[in-house]
Amino acid sequence: MKPAPFVRHAPKTLDEALKILAEVAPQDGRILAGGQSLVPVMAFRMARPAHLVDINEVAGLDKLAVEDGKLIVGARVRHATFHRPAAPGPLGALLAVVVRNIAHYPIRTRGTMCGSLANADPASEWCLTAATLGAQMVAKSASGERVIAADDFFEGIMSTALAEDELLAEVRLPLLPDGTKFGFNEFSRRAGDFAMSVALAVYEIKDGRIASPRLGVGGAEPHPRRIPEAEAALDGQAPGDMAFRAAAEAAAAAIDPLEDAQTDASYRRDLVRAVVRRALEASL
């Protein structure tokens, strides 16, 4: 289990990185950020990029700042950064809850949020977070920059709207208004394993009722997404068991479940029902 040979590029500036990426992308070149997903598949030789553009030394990509009501997370910011609140208000608290479910501590010291988003594993907690909160992805290439909405970013299992020469340079997460409620729940076989289903619920309370609900589900479909049927079941309802159960049922019914050798569609729906309700209960 030794990776196949590759050429490593270690640019120091973003321009340099993008230029190299433009050159090597057609020759099976890839970005190496935290490497916590890429290196294992290289070890199994299921990925064998000819070039790796290692962005760990690129200046500026470690940006972590609040601008215009958004938390800006650069491509080099590690998961572990979020162990403590990295943004004011509920967003920082939310990220601190979510991050503890990402693999294990020594993975979080290396893996990056942007790397997770670009890798687009269906079970990724950050992909779920980005999809649920409506994050913006800032893709940069030698030919320019574009901002991609989360809804348009995730396309399928390990598949995104990023072009091969584009680097996900940063993600912008909207700050959450004070008083925003959130809850997260994940199901996995063992501690730290990939989620078999995971849910994130975010909403506000207006006049004692749920307002602006966002209910995302991951691990159940090719990519995480918000479930409008579940959000509809929450909107305007009093937060509590009845609304939560209705939302959970709606989510379980709405998904198009992933199946594998051990997990059939009905089990996946069972899990979605459970994690959605539990995420909502955790929001109280």
Partner: peptide, 23 residues
């Protein structure tokens, strides 16, 4: 060699990492 077992954990600049998942 795929980041699950942790037998290869070392400290890099003080932080525990899986040394099989770093070049």
């Amino acid at each position: 060699e795929h980041g699950i077992c942790g037998a290869c954990t070392v400290l890099v600049d003080g932080e525990p990492v899986r040394s099989c998942l770093m070049f």
